[in-house]
């Protein structure tokens, strides 16, 4: 008697039409609003990339005679208090604003993931130690932490971004740790561990790919927060420094103009921030819902 008849082999259940790696599932999860958000983010990234090509003027140079021009043929969105073209400043501003947020998010995701995986893999005392470290970071309000860092290391986009990333790490790490812990308890991870494979191999081959969706979603949600926090730092004069174009800085510099009856600069930059933050939040939420490794 062959093994097949003895143990009743099943007919091959492998379906030929694989859904694997198909983009359809993602689109369905995003929904119409999510797709719109992706399109918006795409346009913003495009604007940032193509700024030198499509911006009609140099964003840093203006002429005093052209200050506070209303939107018109020469300046589509008008000019600011120094006579600089607002459209050009918004396009270049997208570069700093998006790059800054991206740096924050990348660093926070990397730091959070490493801490989460280390805590999960070693467990016990290491886990407890990481937990205490995160508690300590949690105790500091984000902006206060950023202000402290900037006070010590000086102002600038890099300093502000690094400081915020540090402040974001505990949020990312905490959520990812719980996801990784659940994954680690599954039999397949234990089966790999049983073979005496190294922690690096098991973590990299099994844990990391399976928590990647949560890392990604958390990053998308954090992106919005990072833009707001960076804008706040620029607004306070601690982040990007003039004359660099930056949306947060533009809101801040538009204050005086606002009082003089020229609200254009603050409103436009503010609108850009709101749209970008909303788009990233929608994407993050649609991709992962509450299980995401995001802030808050």
């Amino acid at each position: 008697m062959s093994a097949e008849t003895l143990t009743g082999v099943e007919p091959l259940a492998v379906t030929s039409s694989r859904q694997r790696r198909s983009g359809r599932g993602t689109v369905r999860r995003l929904g119409p609003l999510g797709v719109a958000a992706v399109v918006i983010v795409g346009l913003l990234v495009l604007a940032a990339l193509l700024a030198p090509l499509i911006a009609p003027y140099d964003p840093a140079i203006g002429s005093v005679v052209e200050r506070y021009q209303a939107p018109g043929a020469a300046h589509v969105l008008g000019t600011d208090q120094s006579g600089r073209d607002l459209l050009s400043r918004l396009l270049y501003g997208a570069r700093t604003s998006l790059t800054g947020a991206a740096v924050v998010v990348l660093l926070a995701a990397a730091g959070g993931t490493v801490l989460a995986l280390v805590a999960t893999w070693f467990g016990g005392r290491v886990d407890a130690l990481v937990g205490r470290l995160l508690d300590l970071l949690f105790a500091f309000p984000n902006l206060l932490l950023a202000i402290l860092v900037v006070a010590v290391f000086g102002t600038g986009l890099t300093q502000a971004a690094v400081a915020l990333a540090v402040a974001y790490v505990p949020y990312t790490a905490r959520v990812l740790r719980s996801v990784a812990l659940r994954e680690r308890r599954l039999a397949y991870v234990q089966a790999a561990e049983l073979q005496g494979l190294s922690g690096f191999v098991v973590t990299g081959r099994h844990l990391l790919p399976n928590i990647a969706p949560q890392i990604l979603t958390g990053a998308a949600i954090n992106f919005g927060y990072a833009m707001i926090d960076l804008a706040a730092l620029s607004f306070l004069g601690l982040g990007v420094q003039a004359p660099t174009a930056d949306w947060g800085l533009m809101v801040s510099q538009g204050q005086d103009s606002l009082l003089q009856g020229y609200p254009g600069q603050s409103l436009l930059a503010g609108a850009c921030i709101v749209v970008a933050v909303a788009a990233f939040s929608v994407i993050g939420e649609r991709l992962g819902g509450r299980r995401a490794g995001g802030r808050a």
Binding site: L186, Y188, P209, N210
Partner: peptide, 16 residues
């Protein structure tokens, strides 16, 4: 010595 676990859902990495 090798082990076979209970949970048929968790016994394999769903991405591999």
């Amino acid at each position: 010595i090798q082990m076979v676990f209970q949970d048929p859902n968790g016994s394999l990495n769903r991405r591999r």
